[in-house]
């Protein structure tokens, strides 16, 4: 039963990622694209954790943590660039 639930969940997260890609392509403005990228990295974290459960290993959790840190820094840098025109003043 758990395997089926795992597959359904992975399917739902993948559909969510596709919807984010739709918003990433469609826009219409730059902040929308930044927001789509932000959601996309959060979904990637979810997928990595689900992969870890599927394979029964905890090795991938470190990479999920790294994506969380790097994704946050990337979102803030992009949003700051949109607001000020430069990242580091």
């Amino acid at each position: 039963m758990m395997t089926i639930a795992l597959q359904i969940t992975i399917g739902m997260v993948v559909i969510a990622a596709l919807l984010n890609v739709y918003r990433l392509i469609k826009g219409p403005d730059a902040p929308d694209r930044v927001l789509a990228l932000d959601t996309l990295y959060i979904n990637a974290i979810g997928l990595i954790i689900l992969l870890g459960i599927t394979l029964g290993t905890r090795l991938y959790l470190e990479s999920a943590l790294l994506i969380a840190v790097m994704g946050f820094v990337g979102t803030v840098a992009l949003a700051k660039y949109l607001k000020r025109g430069s990242v580091i003043e």
Binding site: M12, V13, I15, A16, A17, L19, N20, L35, N43
Partner: peptide, 8 residues
């Protein structure tokens, strides 16, 4: 997660 993406 899916609902959040649908909202987006």
């Amino acid at each position: 997660t899916l609902v959040g993406a649908i909202g987006l």
